[in-house]
Design a protein around this nucleic acid. Structure first.
Lengths: 137, 137
DNA sequence: AGACTAATTGCGATGAATTCGCAGTTGCAC
DNA sequence: GTGCAACTGCGAATTCATCGCAATTAGTCT
């Protein structure tokens, strides 16, 4: 859970809403703002969606959460301390699988060597077909 | 430019709007629906945005164009015959670089071997920092 | 060439996701 | 406790994309 002073240390005020948003992101693993709001409403029914958006943004600015693009449009948030990993998103069934970031190590290295590009592999989804959806019809 | 019968062959009607949308996508390389509409309006000012959306969808269905997610939310379209390539999007300056798809061959192979995941590398952007934006301040 | 039919277009309405302005509230430094 | 700036709630405003429907039009058949 969110230790009171980890927020204070970042120069943020400690509000129930903010603590709950951070806790929700940590609990949920991956979540859209909508899902975070739902989770928070379990204990704090009155919370406003824009408060959730604003807190996600604030928490991202101080580095406690990050967002990733997994699908069409919407961002999903996850706690920053969570080990970053790859998101394998299936274009057919929509499932999201994880893979350790090391799986991309060589790829990242070669982009760095050949193109001078420093890749953040976890920020965007890796798109394709999951094992199940490749099965013959 | 769009040959009349390449559209007809796909079972599509040949309308000025449709030809122009296809031509615009080919001209622009990468473009959002909004940008395609702007381009088309140069020669066909009255075109409606929803017509552009519908044509992009139709053209994608018959395989003449494809879309990719390069940034936040919006899709960008490109002609299908263009060699598919990786999109290296810089998180700082927003520039979009290209890299041949072979640069990811090993990565794709290892995801297939280890996770049974068949990756479409070009569908989502590869996010990171371009060479310029890595320079010391 | 003229007529028919279904595909396509324009347009406005609609819907979802996100942001914004502002007034009221609240954490926290003193 | 007091005061101020940060934060919240709320509704309005934006943005991006989709939809329904009536009018138009491409392509087919005569």
């Amino acid at each position: 859970m969110a230790e009171p002073h980890e927020l204070r240390e970042k120069g943020l005020r400690l509000t129930p809403q903010r603590e709950l948003v951070l806790a929700a992101v940590r609990d949920l693993g991956h979540a859209t703002p909508e899902e975070v709001a739902e989770k928070v409403r379990l204990t704090h029914p009155g919370i406003n969606l824009s408060t959730v958006y604003r807190n996600l943004e604030t928490l991202e600015n101080v580095g406690l959460v990050q967002h990733t693009h997994l699908g069409h449009g919407g961002a999903t948030y996850h706690a920053a301390e969570e080990l970053t990993h790859l998101h394998l998103v299936c274009s057919k069934c929509g499932s999201v699988g994880d893979a350790p970031i090391e799986a991309a190590a060589n790829f990242v290295q070669s982009l760095a060597d050949d193109y001078g590009f420093k890749t953040d592999v976890s920020h965007f989804a890796i798109y394709g077909l999951c094992e199940n959806c490749q099965l013959p019809l």
